[in-house]
Design a protein around this nucleic acid. Structure first.
Lengths: 305, 305
DNA sequence: TTTTGTCATAAGCAAAACTTATACTGAATC
DNA sequence: GATTCAGTATAAGTTTTGCTTATGACAAAA
């Protein structure tokens, strides 16, 4: 018997529905059925009365299953407490230095801090901001910080990364823009637009974008009507129609009133994937303390991804 | 976190020694180190203070490890209780019909009953004896019994088997026999011996043995001075020097006062493996109830194998 | 210094779990 | 009374995980 099986069992017992439970657990329904089956085999008792057999529309807990449900909940709860208690003792007053890429990653930073606060409440997090993604990586390398939240690509082989959110390039326009109603935009068709952009020295993928445009048959040189130092300003300028801009899909702009976000596609409407802007946790491969590995490993079960 | 990791952790915490704990768990030491390492990574805390680092000769529990030890024990205990309770409810007054091969499998029968009694105390076991291994298998096939304890080989494709004890052929002699002092015997050198044997109709591998002897260059036809119906009698006859006999290595004859057991080897002293006499649990592949599968699956963790 | 005891690391292999696709079963629908 | 639908099981193939053997590293003892 394994805790995974108990977690699966509890999910099914709560939902009384295999497929729904599978969704909640982020696994396929057959995987779930299989594990429950293994558990029942090991115990030697059917824990559920299946919906298919009998003339029921729902799965039901058998008598043995009901008692096992109580026990399983208790066990899972104790397991969680055991981890928390060990962390409380072992990480007491430990400090984690986290460096972040300032301009861009607001949402990610908030989520990271929430997870840290939930799972490692006894760890004191010191946040340090850096102006560019590469600066963050340099700081990790120099061991000024334990962990960096930044954008890929990785610039140093000594670093490890765990991707937190995949991002691809999108285009934002003001709602007054003539093309604001189109579903998606082909890159080549943007050759004559005017652009707003983050200052090159602060930009994670300035050159990659220019290269991409060249491949599409045009250049943005001379078409960038304004460079700014922050994403907020960039968005504001697009909002007032000063120009259009590239932006990572990682940002949720649905609440910006006057902004529309457009997918990039090829001329034939196939999805466009060229410059990826993935946010990731970065840390030193060697010398990783258990705390750092636990943080990196723990991300993804909770809020992020 | 998984229960396996907790089981491993508890073993190490009790032994305070990775290699010894690994032995106890029947896994290799690296596998154990690895799982403990994974557990520590997930929690983010070192649970042990290793013997190699620091100048200690023993592994020690860290402070967090000590508390985690308490919790892990509790969790494992509850897990065991959860299974037992579910069995108690689900298998209440259930009856398991077990067929056994009478002549030969005394030790195995005792062990099986012990395991059943320990892990499924609420199941009533009805024991039925059959004169030959094949009879047991026929009874399983006819669903007269749920489970058969018998000797391989399997005679029906519809049956499944789980080997409980591997056995190979040995030779027994009385201590007065001229060759009683030799370490091992080559089969070919036995061409002129006189044999005692179980009655052919009751014998699981009578023909296979004759075939094996033929390959070694002789036949036992006419050299079998007496056929008997039970293993006890067979042993007694060998004891008084009436002849020698083949017997499975599965039987422990160390307590028989006047009997010596010899390995069979080839002429060049390399180990002889030809007729295997494996004892196994046999059950119907289809229609297996959870109880049967649990019994079959549970064997091996406890006493047998 | 060499040897010994102990745990960690590495590489290849085996077992377990997961995914997708499909079959089965009783109920509801036409 | 066939036909579709909802819900789960089964099968085949892939990927992940854990395990084994072999080897390395490090401190203590000889």
């Amino acid at each position: 018997m394994e805790l995974r099986q108990l977690r699966y069992f509890v999910a099914v017992a709560e939902e009384l529905h295999f497929s729904k439970a599978a969704q909640r657990l982020y696994v396929s329904q057959p995987a779930l059925s299989q594990q429950i089956g293994l558990l029942e085999n090991e115990i030697g008792v059917e824990l559920f009365i299946r919906a298919s057999r009998q003339h029921l529309r729902k799965v039901e807990l058998s008598e043995a299953g009901q008692h096992f449900f109580q026990a399983a909940q208790k066990i899972l709860q104790l397991s969680q407490q055991a981890i928390e208690q060990a962390r409380e003792i072992g990480l007491h007053q430990q400090v984690l230095h986290v460096g972040v890429y300032k301009t861009a990653l607001r949402e990610r930073i908030v989520e990271l801090l929430q997870v840290l606060n939930r799972d490692f409440p006894n760890v004191e997090v010191k946040l340090v901001e850096f102006p560019t993604p590469q600066n963050v990586q340099e700081a990790v390398l120099a061991e000024q910080i334990d962990l960096g939240l930044t954008l890929l690509p990785l610039h140093y082989a000594e670093l490890n990364a765990k991707v937190i959110k995949k991002g691809s390039l999108r285009v934002i326009l003001s709602q007054q823009h003539p093309r604001a109603l189109e579903v998606s935009l082909s890159l080549a068709s943007l050759w004559d637009e005017r652009w707003v952009e983050i200052t090159r020295s602060l930009h994670p993928v300035y050159d990659e974008i220019e290269q991409m445009c060249q491949l599409a048959g045009f250049s943005r040189v001379g078409k960038i009507v304004q460079e700014v130092s922050s994403l907020e300003l960039l968005i504001s300028l697009v909002e007032v129609g000063r120009g259009i801009a590239f932006i990572s899909s990682a940002y949720d702009l649905s609440k910006e009133p006057n902004i529309v976000v457009k997918e990039l596609v090829h001329a034939d409407d196939s999805p466009f994937v060229s410059v990826a802007i993935d946010s990731a946790l970065v840390y030193l491969g060697k010398n990783g303390s258990p705390l750092i590995r636990a943080v990196v490993g723990g991300i993804g079960e909770g809020m992020l991804v």
